[in-house]
Design a protein around this nucleic acid. Structure first.
Lengths: 99, 99
DNA sequence: TTCATATTTCCAATATTATCGAAATAATGC
DNA sequence: GCATTATTTCGATAATATTGGAAATATGAA
């Protein structure tokens, strides 16, 4: 993972609504949740929810699939794992591995 | 960890300069690095570096100690671990643990 | 094809964040 | 106390993000 893509992912999560949306999707697993249901669940206008989902999607943190009229979002665990790894990369390398 | 403190930590990291500063401090371990040296290292005015270090400090991601005239910053690994844990909390719990 | 439902895009207003020069604060040595 | 070095705060400007109504797009059903 490159710095820019890490910044994108972190910026996507650095917003209260989006962090809660993402964490709910993390709970939901591969089943995911429809955009409209998320909108209802968080009491947020569809336009606002759509904006947040787009941010998470651009950051690669969620994936979407169409199911009939709904669009189902789910967490992208691979991207998440990459981000976590990036943040701890080379931990204490310049200190003889001592943290 | 609460949502608000996670948002603070993520927002602190969601900025290219700060993410690089933090990652350098992660490498440095407990030895850390002086504010002025960081300023020189990144070719950034002291006022700008100070602003970024304050953000990281407010988020609990770095700690500082005075050593004579210098202020030494180092990464706070505990806070980092808490953040990583928070992001993956209850992973797939609503899907029978299947991701 | 017409209607209802689901979601996204457009746009403008508002709010938040980043940058950095200049001035202020803090510690040390003479 | 005065000069030097290290860092932070202040304040103004510029850049970026958030919000949500209204209109546009896409799917499915009658």
């Amino acid at each position: 993972m490159k710095t820019k893509s890490a910044v994108n992912a972190l910026a996507a999560l650095a917003q209260e609504s989006r962090l809660e949306i993402f964490r709910l999707l993390v709970r939901k697993g591969s089943t995911g949740m429809a955009a409209g249901d998320l909108s209802t669940h968080f009491g947020m206008p569809p336009a606002t929810m759509s904006f947040h989902l787009k941010e998470l999607n651009n950051a690669g943190l969620v994936i979407s699939r169409r199911e009939s009229r709904s669009i189902i979002y789910s967490a992208n665990y691979e991207q998440m794992q990459q981000l976590l790894g990036f943040l701890m990369e080379n931990c204490c390398a310049d200190n003889g591995g001592k943290c």
